[in-house]
Design a binder for these strands. Structure first.
Length: 943
RNA sequence: GGGCCCUUAGCUCAGUUGGUUAGAGCACUGCGUUUACACCGCAGGUGUCAUCGGUUCGAGUCCGGUAGGGCCCA
């Protein structure tokens, strides 16, 4: 029979072995029979599968897993599903490049379609080289690719050791998720929270879709002010008595045809006389009014600006608030429309407009400037500036504003009472750290409109409505046809509207399907409803919703977190979760945020393989929530060292106590020996996976007096451990996992470096080097005390470390404990305190350690091996510590290999009236610090 | 321009309601192969707590200003 405890312990290879066992034993399987009070539910962010996972994901998902494992050990049944966010634009883009195709909804479906490329080379394929395919073919390719990606993601998460119930994974594009998204939409529609509107919309001309406020970003771009002359109309000449032109400066001369007014600040004295009068636009000769508005900035350009429908977001506000006409000149393809807007009537104006029609914004500007120069209505050369321009965060051309019919969901952007209510939800939510709530508050206060959820794309959840066609075949937008909830999910582009036949599609008197899909966030804002079974599992839903925890990155507070709060508030009138744990950024060594574009991203699997998962988890867990962390492989090496130490210290404990002797051949015997060595404090009761109490440590109804743990040093160690357990538990309960780890780690190193060294000889109880120890044979009381302490401490440390180092702790647990450490109970201090009684003094560990270090220092400075025997040495100890050193004296002599140790009161020793001469060997300084231990009169056995 | 966070040893970071001489790990140097571990152990030096001012018997900690860094929003 092979030994169950390896001769050479290593952290390498533990991941695959334990993942297989955990899967086979269903260690993390959610038990839905538990009661609401017993359940801890986590709403894990579904990563975008079309993107690649990076170190930041590993970082924040580890934070979540650490909490999940802690809560599970505290006896909670952890509901911890994992999802994949696969719908949306990122997947479409990836499919286009990976397969060399693009979606053309006008094409018919092709059976058994095989794409022109598979795999691609990661570079984008030009649109012209992409093969157009039908929407259904395109979606099939999206699903094919995401399925592959999801497998890789799951493999990574398993390797990292996430304690997810992998039987409960979900996809945001899955039919059940679509049904949830559509049901929530329909209900919002019926309550009036979802609505459609024809309105100016921020539009990405590359992707040809509308985008939401949350997806915008400002980028500084070069631009140029063009100084243009507007001629006064008759009423202005009359008002001012002047024929002078009005000069405006604009960065967008190509939109001149859309000009509907000039605007200046109401307080601007230069232009006050002009308000209410008119000017004529250059080139086109359209008469437009001069108006006043507070958003015009007197110090920008000439202080008076032209309002175009729609040059930027301010133009939209002006158009709305000043009730100006709409004159669109830009199409959804980003080109100037072929038909001129109202007002361009003269032949000359039409001719000028025709010069621009069909051009891109860029070319139109060039041509427009030429015309302006020819007409001599532009003053000088364009003046170059840098200015912020709005972009779609995933796009690379400036956003334009076009008028289009879109769907919205109310989010407080237009309704003060809803906004107030949502701000209240933000205050109600427990953000960790709390200052992250400010980001939520700032975002809600900065909303400028409702949430635009419709996207003119293909791979996503369809907006579940149809529209009737009148007898003329025109769409009746105002009367959307809505499916019943039990019909969901529906695809209006292929399913017939309720009450119609398929033949009535797109014929007069029939119906047509909504072509738009919902924004990704419109589905992922419903992950609590998706995973908790809102639509189809009322029993589960009642037990898991509202959820306990939403962990996520700080970047998506305004998007994912906020939109989820919105949906929950609208539908359920409550928060979707109690706590929101916000992870920080990962910064590269230059303190910059790590990102793909900077090319400084490390692949997570490579990291896990080179350092080990426990090591990488240790690095992640060392960072507090909300705090940015450096990408620090040094920290991973420390984690690896800790995991390695856990294995080796455990080997020692099991060896010195004799448990290894029997556990090597049989787990049952090892468990029994463990119970024997600890007198039942660590016993084998409640074996198996069921119940949170498996492998529990039970107080053997002791008050310290009947305990095997009699030695003061042993009692001190367990007292110190009890303190650490209390601190770690309090910290963990407050989501401060870092402190829990740090406290456990610090005491563990003291345990290894000092305590173990001190009690080693006592625990061996005279056994010959290398000899097997019989754990059941009688031994001296001192040995029994040390052995019991070693095992109790080890077993407690394993449970303290289990959330952080799931692989190393489970490996060791399997050597001598039944079941899995991950279903063992989180340690409590009561059993430890019961074993050591009230009189235990935790500080004895530190004092004994200090004394040991003093003897080590003597040898280190003498440049001799720590093994060197000391015939005799005086240990000068501060008075307050003398008693403690005496208590550990025998262990100290054994560990320090001292044959004769004199413990001397350091204060008394300095007093010449006591020993008369000072140190006989001259080693001590006459002004020695009496608060620090030191040695004198050392005699080495031989040099 | 508004909001939030940060600045402590060469590096990464602790430092809890203000209270002895501000800590840890890494790195570095020296020593040492010990019946757990060389992926090891032991020992050692390391500070203008960004800066200026205030409150206080006492400030790394509380308050205000300044500088630098980061993020979000306009």
């Amino acid at each position: 029979m092979t030994a169950r405890i390896p001769d050479k312990a290593t952290v390498d290879g533990l991941e695959d072995r334990w993942n297989q066992t955990w899967e086979a034993d269903g260690v993390y399987r959610f038990d839905a029979s538990k009661s609401r009070e017993e359940i801890y539910s986590i709403d894990t962010p579904p990563p975008t599968v079309s993107g690649s996972l990076h170190v930041g994901h590993v970082f924040s998902y580890t934070h979540t897993d650490v909490v999940a494992r802690f809560q599970r050990m505290c006896g909670r049944e952890v509901f911890y599903p994992m999802g994949w966010d696969d719908n949306g634009l990122p997947t479409e883009r990836r499919v286009q490049n990976y397969f060399g195709v693009r979606c053309d909804p006008s094409l018919p479906y092709e059976e058994n379609f095989e794409p022109p490329h598979v795999g691609g080379d990661g570079k984008s394929i030009k649109a012209a080289d992409q093969q157009p395919i039908s929407r259904r073919n395109f979606i099939e390719l999206c699903e094919r690719l995401t399925a592959e990606d999801e497998q890789q993601f799951e493999a990574l998460w398993r390797h990292l050791g996430l304690s997810v119930d992998w039987s409960r994974t979900y996809q945001t594009i899955a039919p059940s998720s679509q049904a949830v998204a559509q049901q929530a939409f329909i209900r919002s529609l019926k309550r009036g929270e979802a609505y459609q509107a024809e309105a100016p919309t921020l539009w990405d001309v590359t992707f040809r879709t509308a985008v939401a406020q949350a997806e915008l970003e400002d980028r500084d771009r070069p631009g140029a002010y063009h100084r243009l002359a507007f001629e006064p109309a008759a009423d202005m000449e009359e008002a001012t008595g002047s024929y002078d032109s009005v000069w405006i400066e604009t960065t967008r001369p190509e939109l001149l045809a859309a000009c509907v007014a000039l605007v200046a600040h109401p307080d601007d004295e230069r232009y006050q006389p002009l308000f209410g009068t008119h000017v004529r636009t250059p080139i086109f000769g359209v008469e437009v009014p001069v108006v006043a508005h507070r958003l015009a900035s007197p110090d920008k350009g000439s202080g008076i600006a032209m309002i175009c429908t729609f040059g930027d977001v301010t133009d939209v506000i002006w158009q709305r608030e000043l009730d100006l006409p709409i004159r669109s000149v830009l199409g959804h393809d980003g080109r100037i429309l072929s038909e001129p807007p109202a007002g361009i009537d003269s032949d000359a104006a039409r001719a000028a407009y025709n010069e621009l029609a069909g051009l891109t914004v860029f070319s139109a500007q060039k041509r427009m400037v030429e015309m302006l120069v020819e007409a001599d209505v532009m003053d000088g050369d364009p003046r170059a500036i840098q200015h912020p321009v709005k972009f779609f965060e995933k796009g690379d051309k400036p956003l334009e504003i076009v008028t289009s019919r879109q769907w919205y969901i109310a989010n407080g952007g237009r309704d003060a009472s809803l906004r107030t209510a949502l701000l209240g939800r933000g205050e109600e939510l427990d953000f960790i750290p709390s200052h992250m709530g400010k980001r939520y508050e700032n975002w809600v206060n900065g909303l400028t409109g409702d949430w635009l959820i419709s996207r003119q794309r293909f791979f996503g959840v369809p907006i579940p409505v149809w529209y009737p066609l009148n007898d003329a075949g025109e769409i009746v937008w105002d009367s959307p046809i809505v499916p019943d909830e039990d019909q969901l999910p529906v695809d209006p582009s292929s399913d017939a509207a309720p009450g119609y036949t398929a033949e009535q599609r797109d014929v007069p008197g029939g119906f047509t399907g909504e072509k738009d899909i919902m924004d990704t966030w419109a589905t992922s804002s419903l992950t609590p409803q998706i995973v908790c079974g809102w639509r189809d599992d009322p029993e589960l839903y009642a037990k898991t919703f509202p959820m306990d925890l939403r962990p996520q990155g700080q970047d998506i507070i305004r998007t994912w977190l906020f939109s989820t709060v919105v949906r929950s508030h609208l539908e359920h009138h409550e928060l979707p979760w109690k706590h929101a744990a916000i992870s920080g950024w990962i910064l590269d060594p230059d303190r910059k945020k790590m990102s793909k574009s900077k090319g400084n991203v490390v692949t997570p699997m490579g990291l896990l393989e080179s350092h080990g998962s426990d090591a990488v988890r240790y690095w992640a867990a060392s960072a507090r929530l909300g705090t940015d962390a450096a990408f620090d492989e040094g920290q991973m090496k420390i984690g690896r060292r800790l995991a390695n130490k856990v294995l080796n210290a455990s080997k020692f404990v099991l060896g010195a106590t004799g448990i290894a002797t029997v556990a090597n051949s049989s787990l049952d015997e090892g468990v029994a020996a463990t119970a024997h060595v600890t007198a039942g404090v660590v016993n084998g009761a409640s074996m198996g996976l069921s119940g949170g109490a498996a492998g529990d440590a039970h107080p053997a109804a002791l008050d310290g007096t009947g305990s095997l743990v009699t030695d003061p040093l042993d009692r001190a160690l367990l007292a110190a451990l009890a303190d650490v357990v209390d601190t770690a538990t309090t910290a963990f309960s407050a989501y401060d996992h870092t402190r829990a780890l740090e406290r456990a780690e610090t005491l563990f190193w003291t345990f290894c470096d000092d305590y173990v060294e001190l009690v080693k000889a006592r625990a061996y109880d005279g056994a010959a080097p290398g000899a097997d120890i019989d754990p059941l044979a009688p031994c001296s009381p001192g040995a029994a005390s040390a052995r019991a302490t070693l095992v109790i401490a080890l077993e407690t440390f394993l449970r303290l470390f289990a959330p952080f180092l799931p692989f190393a702790t489970e490996e060791v647990w399997s050597w001598f404990r039944p079941g899995t450490v991950h279903r063992a109970s989180w340690p409590t201090s009561e059993p430890l305190r019961a074993v050591v009684g009230d009189g235990a003094d935790a500080s004895l560990v530190a004092t004994a350690g200090e004394a040991l270090a003093t003897i080590r220092k003597l040898k280190s400075e003498a440049k001799v091996s720590q093994r060197t025997e000391l015939t005799s040495v005086d240990l000068l100890v501060p008075e307050s510590k003398v008693a403690a050193v005496h208590a550990a004296k025998a262990d100290l002599m054994a560990a320090g290999r001292v044959q004769s140790l004199q413990v001397v009161d350091a204060v008394a020793a300095l007093d010449e009236g006591v020993d008369g001469d000072g140190p006989e060997d001259g080693s001590g300084s006459p002004v020695a610090d009496t608060t620090v231990m030191r040695t004198e009169n050392a005699v080495f056995a031989d040099a």
